[in-house]
Design a protein around this nucleic acid. Sequence first.
DNA 1: GTTTAACTGTTCAACTATTTAACTATTAAC
DNA 2: GTTAATAGTTAAATAGTTGAACAGTTAAAC
Lengths: 151, 151
Amino acid sequence: MCEKSIKELVDHYINVSFSVNKIAEGLVKEQIGSDLTNDQHYTLRYINKVGTCTSSELAEVFDVKKSAITAIITRMWEKGLIQRTRDENDRRVVYLTLTDKGNELFLKTEERIQALVESFITRFDQSEVVQFLKTFDKLNEILTERKSKVE
Amino acid sequence: MCEKSIKELVDHYINVSFSVNKIAEGLVKEQIGSDLTNDQHYTLRYINKVGTCTSSELAEVFDVKKSAITAIITRMWEKGLIQRTRDENDRRVVYLTLTDKGNELFLKTEERIQALVESFITRFDQSEVVQFLKTFDKLNEILTERKSKVE
DNA sequence: GTTTAACTGTTCAACTATTTAACTATTAAC
DNA sequence: GTTAATAGTTAAATAGTTGAACAGTTAAAC
């Protein structure tokens, strides 16, 4: 009986997370507009946060191969959103930073996404949101741990 | 002060949901194996659940254009996982069902994914999971509502 | 009853994303 | 000094996506 209950919870989680992800992705895409794809916005977002990073770092964060990152960065570089700078000490490394244009575009779209997320997050009690994020964080930790074990 | 707090919550949510999605997607991909992609598994999953559906229905559920569904279904049809049957009453409609092979493959991979999700869901108190899913459901409802408004 | 409008699904061209494998250039290890 | 490992790129193959145009079918208007 208890086993069945867990299976139901698991099934429930898979269904809801699929649905939420799909819809949220679609809504975010609308806010981003046609200038960028979702991945490109998240790339801007990450580089904006850390200031400077490498392709390998992005590959780790996005959980894809480095060649996939090269493709994404090249597209954004062609649009003038990202700058590539070789490290003079270790000439294998290429540092990625946002151009002014990239930063501007990020801020513009991020504002819209923040407003979108805020518009539905404020429909919950603050305590409920805090509790939800607490569990979400814990899930994130467990997944991160699991991921590094697998590798 | 309260405004800043909301902004922080929003930022927190965006970061965590991005991270969880990326990692979970990667882990699920490993469980699915090379026979299928994530989207293909979720397609099997949906058709298995409802028994029979149409391309338009899938486009709605996956939140993509119908031409995208046609491409996915054709690939799976070529692998012998999905059957296409014309409705004889309304000859515009094509019903999609799983073949035996499709159903078998779904069950095999679903078992592994269930085990994966169970392995981390059981690291939470049951009450915490229930509360989390309750909030997740509510979020799902709000997003669904918002999505239908936009359209 | 015929024309018009709406709907279901497909095709095509263009694009983004991804993986695998081979490769260049560079640095570290022994 | 040769060998290992590392950072990043390239190229071919595959998946997914959109937008626009299209065929076939059904419903509505008149």
